[in-house]
C-alpha cells in the first residue's frame, strides 16, 4: 500500500493508513506471486469481506503486504473500484 500511495498510483486509496479499517487498498496478487506473502490473518480476512469489488482467492489488503527481498518485483492487479 505504502508503495502505491508514494507512487501516486490511482486505484489504491488506503484511507485508514494501514489500520485494516477501510478495505480501500484491495489488490489481487498475481498468481505467480501469491505464495510469497504471509497468509491472510483473521483481521484481514474479515476486512476482505468489506471490499467494493468481490474478493477472490488472490485478494489481499495491500497494507498487509510488506516489501521484502522475497517479494521484490511483485505484480498485483488493481480492482475497478475501492
Amino acid at each position: 500500500m505504502q508503495t502505491a500511495i508514494d507512487g501516486l498510483v490511482p486505484g489504491i486509496v488506503g484511507e485508514c493508513g494501514g489500520e485494516m479499517s477501510c478495505a480501500t487498498c484491495h489488490v489481487f496478487v498475481d498468481e505467480d506471486w501469491a505464495g510469497r506473502f504471509a497468509p491472510v490473518s483473521e483481521d484481514e480476512a474479515a476486512m476482505l469481506e468489506a471490499t467494493a469489488v468481490e474478493p477472490t482467492e488472490f485478494s489481499r489488503l495491500s497494507c498487509q503486504l510488506p516489501c521484502t527481498l522475497e517479494t521484490d518485483g511483485v505484480v498485483v492487479h488493481i480492482p475497478d473500484e475501492q
Binding site: 505504502q2 500511495i5 508514494d6 501516486l8 485508514c16 493508513g17 489500520e19
Partner: peptide, 24 residues
C-alpha cells in the same frame, strides 16, 4: 488517527505515521 491508538500504545513511531515517504 493512530495518535490515539497505535502511537499511544507504543506500536507506532513517527516515521511509520508519515502519510507519504519524504522522497515523494
Amino acid at each position: 488517527p493512530p495518535l490515539s491508538k497505535a502511537f499511544l500504545a507504543g506500536d507506532a513511531d513517527e516515521e511509520s505515521l508519515l502519510i507519504r515517504s519524504p522522497s515523494v
